[in-house]
């Protein structure tokens, strides 16, 4: 069963260690998916910035991306970035760790985005 690599995943957090930690957790069950991250600002401070997020989007090999994030400004910057990139972004307002883990495990299993979104629906918290 081949992983779904047409659809990629991007993680956005205020802190580099948070996306590093979630990636580690995810990679255990999803070694083959297209996963990139933006943690903290371009300058390495706590926060999010659009240019850093755009980098993670560009670096991802997939053109259709499922995006997970932690707090408010990440969401606002993601909305800004949506206007700045040619790739298709799907932002999920779900519990960060649980949502990202669910999507990653299902992408690895070869599921489509539509199927994954059914599993994500009950995890919506924001």
């Amino acid at each position: 069963m081949a992983a779904n690599t047409q659809t990629g995943m991007v993680l956005v957090s205020h802190v580099p260690e948070i996306v590093a930690g979630i990636s580690k957790l995810i990679r255990q069950v999803a070694p083959d998916i297209n996963l990139t991250t933006a943690g903290g600002t371009s300058d390495g401070d706590i926060g999010t910035d659009a240019t850093h997020i755009l980098q993670a989007i560009d670096d991802n090999h997939a053109d259709e991306l499922m995006v997970f994030y932690d707090l408010g400004s990440a969401k606002m910057n993601l909305d800004l970035v949506t206007d700045m990139t040619d790739k298709t972004l799907h932002r999920y307002d779900v519990a960060f760790v649980e949502g990202a883990y669910t999507a990653a495990a299902l992408l690895q299993a070869g599921d489509s985005r539509a199927e994954i979104e059914k599993q994500l629906a009950p995890l919506k918290i924001k």
Binding site: D43, G47, D49, S73, M76, N77, L80
Partner: peptide, 15 residues
């Protein structure tokens, strides 16, 4: 502002 502010104020003032 978008690339340097960092917090929610970056995208808000930037917008």
């Amino acid at each position: 502002l978008i690339s340097k502010v960092g917090g929610a104020s970056g995208p808000l003032y930037g917008t």
